[in-house]
Amino acid sequence: MSKIRCLLLLLLALTFTPTPFARELPVKPPLRIGLTPVFLDDQSAFLNTWRSYLEQHLKRPVVFTQRGSYREIMDLLRDGKLDFAWLCGYPYIRNRDHFRLVAVPLYRGVPLYHSYLIVPATDTKTRTLTDLSNKIFAFSDPDSNSGHLYPEYLLAKQNLQPASFFAKNFYTWSHRKVVEAVASGLAQGGAVDGYVWDTLSRTHPEITARTRIVTESPEFGFPPIVASARVSMRDTGNFQKVLFNMGHDDEGVILLDRLNINGFVKGDDHLFDGIADMARFVEEQRVNAPQRH
């Protein structure tokens, strides 16, 4: 009798003892990171792996936010609805007052990249952008440097505007889709982030093979990772530390390889001076030029 009672008591005690595994961790607010198609951001499985990598190293939840255009991410970051964002150098230099530079990826050993002018592989004649007069042209995003600003700048230098120079131009809202638009023949020319084109040629050579690079732009600062002005220095520092150390562990190396970059560095604001100069020139030209819409 007494034995049974002992056993029952023991069972009861076990039932109500909080197990060590069920202990709740103190909830930290998630780190919100905006992503733009400056890299191949349409790989959900990869993003999940990267997110859990960051969560593991930051020891807090991470939320990736993706939107249809650079501008939406830009606005969210400026409004403080995002903590960090990986976006293009062009939006960064326009919002230098609101954003802080966190890290710049190293591509082929340098924090630089090019803009490619591409045409369908079947087009063997085009030598420069000017040859695409009265053709259909695909831009990636109005706020993209390589996918919009640079070709616009080239035209502006000749006192031309895309709307009148091309028979028609349109935005695909993603570098990868510019390549697809040109590859499918929908557009007869397109401006694309050289890094994205190179990376795509690694994973989907059948798409890039149907395009031809006509010209490469001079070097520009690689699309950086920036922070909202509202993010604390501590959070920024933690994030930087994780990004800079990605090359130091196996998992990080695999992720960097998937991203096709060598790592992240602190970077320098002057990297984006070239973009800033082009932006200033183009904006002045826009103001002066007669509107032909």
């Binding site: 369908p120 079947t122 259909i136 028609k168 499918s184 023949g185 929908l186």
Partner: peptide, 12 residues
């Protein structure tokens, strides 16, 4: 405006 065979039916 657009077609699934842009090479055959170019825009415009």
């Amino acid at each position: 405006f657009v077609s699934t065979q842009p090479e055959k039916f170019p825009m415009l």
